[in-house]
Nucleic acid binder design. Sequence first.
RNA 1: GGGCGAUUGGCUCAGUUGGUUAGAGCGCCACAUUCACAUUGUGGAGGUCAAAGGUUCGAAUCCUUUAUCGCCCACCA
Length: 883
Amino acid sequence: MREIPSAYNSKTTEDKWYNLWESKKFFRAEPDAKRKPYTIVIPPPNITGILHMGHALNNTVQDILIRWRRMQGWNAEWLPGTDHAGIATQNVVEKMLAKEGIKRQDLGREKFIERVWKWREQYGSTIISQLKRLGCSCDWDRTRFTMDEGLSNAVVEVFIRLYEKGLIYRGNYIINWCPRCQTALSDEEAQHKDLNSFLYYVKYPVKGENRHVTVATTRPETMLGDVAVAVNPKDARYDNLIGETLILPLMNREIKVIADEIVDPGFGTGAVKVTPAHDPNDFEMGRRHNLEPVVVMNPDGTMGKNAGDYSGMDRFEAREAILEDLKEMKLLEKVEPHAHSVGHCYRCHTVIEPYLSLQWFVKMKPLAKAGIEAANSGKIKFYPDRWTKVYLDWMENIRDWCISRQIWWGHRIPVYYCGKCQKTSEGKKGISVSRVRPQKCPDCGGRDIVQDEDVLDTWFSSWLWPFSTFGWPEKTKDLAYFYPTSTLVTAQEIIFFWVARMIISGYEFMGDAPFKDIYIHGTVRDEAGAKMSKSLGNIIDPIEIIDEFGADALRFSMISITAAGQDVFLSKEKFQLGRNFANKIWNAARFVITNLSEDVDTDLCVLYKTADLTLADRWILSNFYSTLEGLDKALESYRFSEAANLLYDFIWHKYCDWYLEIAKSRIKEKNTQIILYKVLEKSLRLLHPIMPFITEEIWNSLPHKRDSIMVQPWPHLQKDLIDKKTEGDMDLAIGIITAIRNIRAEVNIQPHKFCNAIVTAGSGKSRGAMEKSLDYIKNLAKLESLEVAEKLKRPKASSISVFGDCEICVPLDGLVDIEAEKKKVMSKIGELEKYANSIEVKLRNRNFTAKAPKEVVGKEKEKLDEAKVSLDKLKGNLKRLES
RNA sequence: GGGCGAUUGGCUCAGUUGGUUAGAGCGCCACAUUCACAUUGUGGAGGUCAAAGGUUCGAAUCCUUUAUCGCCCACCA
């Protein structure tokens, strides 16, 4: 017998096995025409990222799928990598430089980018090594980075193709501007939050008259850039004002009152200030009425040179100052509390400015068509399905994508300008969109060529991820084999950012969807339901959990509490679930291994088909294969918690609680040892995708000759071994054992003491089942003798119970509390009568018997018969007790 | 303004197409420690499924309305 520690220690196993898997290249997949690929591309974490619970959930799910499919014989490829995360990374490096007292402008563009690359070398693979601790079986040899040469080529190629199709354009529009990051953002990058703010009513005097118009605004500081006041043309109140000239307070500029349909007469005063440079609606209005925008703010959020006396102030200071001044001039009519939603930068949470500037855009409408059809036709499927609608709503109302960013870290826009032409042609000439820097201007031949200063949105590289990572635009073998991928696993937060855009680009550049299934898992939250975030300090660090509980415990716990697509509420205690389960398996394995005789040939897979199997043997096999069947179904439909719970229930409550306990009394028998071993060995395989480390550790303690569990085949479903009759027979035995244990507890028979029992079976079926389970009942109920009687001979002092159509009687030494017995029996009779009655009512209902399926009616009849048998027995006993 | 999700025992949640005397984990109560496991075992208590109405032979499950909480989207001056 081997020495095996009595508790599973994850610390001594995890690295060992991970290194082995890696060194044996088990994660590697090569194109192989003879095998079907199963491909997942990882949602590339940011290089600034540190593994958090969201990653842990996301990657556990992917690893489960990959390991499961790999064992099933698919050529499983999980392609890993990281995202350069333009703004996030630039922010991090800038912060680091700030500690040295350096600004990026001090370094200059090239030097700064050098520093970012250096930073990336040092810290950029933190998350990769953390994924390894989690057990992820990624094909690390194919690790990609969105700024790799290949992926950068893909980005340029895509830009050029879209530009040439007329789907990329440059223009002056209102975009979301983050004054802190000092860059444009896409609509998706502006996160709207409801703020309790104020609506300020400001009087604008009519020129030369003693009257005024009152406008309502939430952002008084932008009034400095007003170019008009607008009213609805149908608004009778303002009929006589349209066309009048107003004096813009504080600036003393003359502006007109204009009429525009967009103005809602019901809001505020029905008159609205028009600020085309600082509001998207006003911008459109300004265009309609040929009004020149006036920009009053600088890119850093301070007031600009057009802001008069307020120039140089911060935007929020300026707001206060302006309100003060208006108050003094008696032009502030009133202030009302007003809740409205305000955009915030998704990177630094600064309040966003709608800002007029020159940016690059992608025309999305024509690109979205194929992706809409794909979801409608079911070619692409979301799990859970409700996300289809969310996706379609966005796709059908898609807006142009602002892709230029005024930062340095990222893919530089492949556009070159001729200095001379740009000056003379209003910017319309001298533009080259090119893979390489042009030698001279295509229009004038001039050599004063400069590249666009901006870089592209990070997502402009991520949206190509499913094919750029396999070599696109080259026609590589990898691309042909692994694309389209099989499943995308991601979180709801990036459906628009990433999922939808990948589908768009997949159809545009590959002519096919990038994946078939999209599994959207929930958001990981703390116990109170808040998102986990550093600033809230409510983070549970996965690495700490791995250190304390083990990676398998983390994975199992996480999966088992995550119902499909629902948010996960985590607390540290919840990881005990997985840790305890791991320990349970460990000890079951310890028992099986240490009891295995040297001469048992564990390679004999077919033995249990021909040998005489006991009821318990057949029962555990039947349960095993039911579990396997359910497990496959659960995984196929992305119901991971169900998969985990099926395994938990089978291993703990079937295999350990019952089969193993029954096996103890016949542990010397080879058949028992073999079944114990086989079921354990197969269960380990089923468990491996969720708990890779402990299953590998135990696998290696088994007396077998194969090297690793992760390359073993997935057990084959043997449907013929699933046997409902066997399960029913065993249920009876379990019921009788439980009933006897119950009696023992009630009458305080000490656990180590033996007692006797007499059981009467109500039917031949039950008698047959009883015969097969006499030993189990004797052993597990701690009986000295078990008598199976045709008709009950009840000793005077005894306690009874009923299970199904069987009556269980435990004779007692000495006195029995007759009253307590009576009470117990009566309460059971009450319960049963209620139950039987409810069935009788049902069966008396002609509608039921006529309309319900025969099976259902038959089932009800059976239930009633059984209940009646039990009732008769209980009533007989009550009589005896009373006499 | 629109959409989505949640509401089941003390806590956290399952419950797949309507047919179980509604399940689990944790917690709780009682008992148990030579004999795989106290990261354990055995037994037990505890809910009628947010509310109202409807469909149906039959509803936690489908429909309508309402309430509470949460999330997403929207050109809410």
